[in-house]
């Protein structure tokens, strides 16, 4: 446990001494803020037109559906591009500058290295998402949304981001080049993001599989306030898979 915490602490120091974490967090907050106010004005617009909508028998605008769902889903797109910036250096940099030789010849296990590094990513991600939680909080304070879906949606986005980070870390473990790690994780996450596309031309089990693999659909469940075992298992498996692959990559290094 001491090893895991020591490694996590060291990684956090790197994140906040080098400006990467600040840049990513600031960028994320700005982007999410931008989209929040966009969805907010869209909602206002729809609200003004409410009488017409009512006359034609169309549904009334809904705070949760319009703003919360929109913002949470947009966050996923932004995260596909920003999470790799956080994860690309996490292992690759150690390999390139030779500090890996220190870690691998110290009495720490590969799993402790992996968990320590992942924990540091989890902390940065939690801070990043917690800051943008200000926007939904504004709605709760000044409006009358349904609160539980806002909270469960946040948990869904958090789990999804942790999954993305785990995959990004695995990619970083396979190379010593940060740029290669960054670009490959972006491509991987983007592919994952659009993976339900083939489902439209397929049917039956195949379509269901592609739909199940899509983080968009899984987060949607959380955003609607239905926290199912299925989506929770989905995100946890993504996290475990990434950790497992990182572990394998580093084990292979030790016994190359």
């Amino acid at each position: 446990m001491r090893n895991i915490l020591a490694i996590c602490k060291r990684e956090l120091l790197s994140f906040f001494v080098s400006p990467i974490a600040y840049f990513v967090i600031t960028g994320f907050t700005l982007l999410v803020g931008f989209f929040f106010f966009n969805y907010f004005s869209l909602f206002l617009r729809m609200y003004q037109m409410a009488p017409y909508l009512q006359m034609r028998g169309m549904p009334m605008p809904n705070l949760n559906q319009t703003i919360i769902e929109g913002v949470y889903q947009t966050m996923l797109v932004i995260l596909v591009f920003l999470v790799p910036l956080l994860t690309m250096r996490i292992v690759a940099e150690d390999k390139r500058r030779g500090t890996f030789e220190l870690l691998l010849t110290s009495p720490v296990s590969v799993s402790e290295i992996v968990l320590g590094k992942y924990l540091s990513l989890a902390v940065v991600i939690f801070v990043m998402l917690a800051i943008t939680f200000i926007f939904p909080l504004l709605l709760i304070v000044y409006g009358t949304p349904e609160v539980p879906p806002i909270l469960s949606g946040f948990v869904g986005v958090l789990l999804c981001t942790l999954g993305f980070a785990s995959i990004g870390m695995a990619v970083s473990s396979f190379t010593e080049n940060q740029i290669v790690a960054g670009v490959s994780s972006m491509v991987t996450l983007l592919l994952l993001y659009v993976i339900q596309a083939p489902a439209e031309s397929l049917d039956g089990t195949a379509a269901a599989v592609f739909r199940y693999l899509s983080p968009v659909d899984q987060v949607q469940d959380f955003v609607r306030g239905v926290v199912t075992l299925k989506s929770t298992v989905y995100f946890l498996s993504m996290i475990v898979l990434g950790l497992f692959l990182s572990q394998r990559a580093l084990d292979a290094l030790r016994w190359r």
Binding site: A6, L13, S14, S18, G98, S106, P107
Partner: peptide
């Protein structure tokens, strides 16, 4: 020498002390 450039010498030695037990 396997140094972490962004750490001070003291921070670095504390880290190594931690992982060396």
């Amino acid at each position: 020498p396997p140094l972490y450039g962004e750490m001070t010498v003291e921070e670095y030695l504390r880290f190594v002390g931690d992982i060396k037990g």
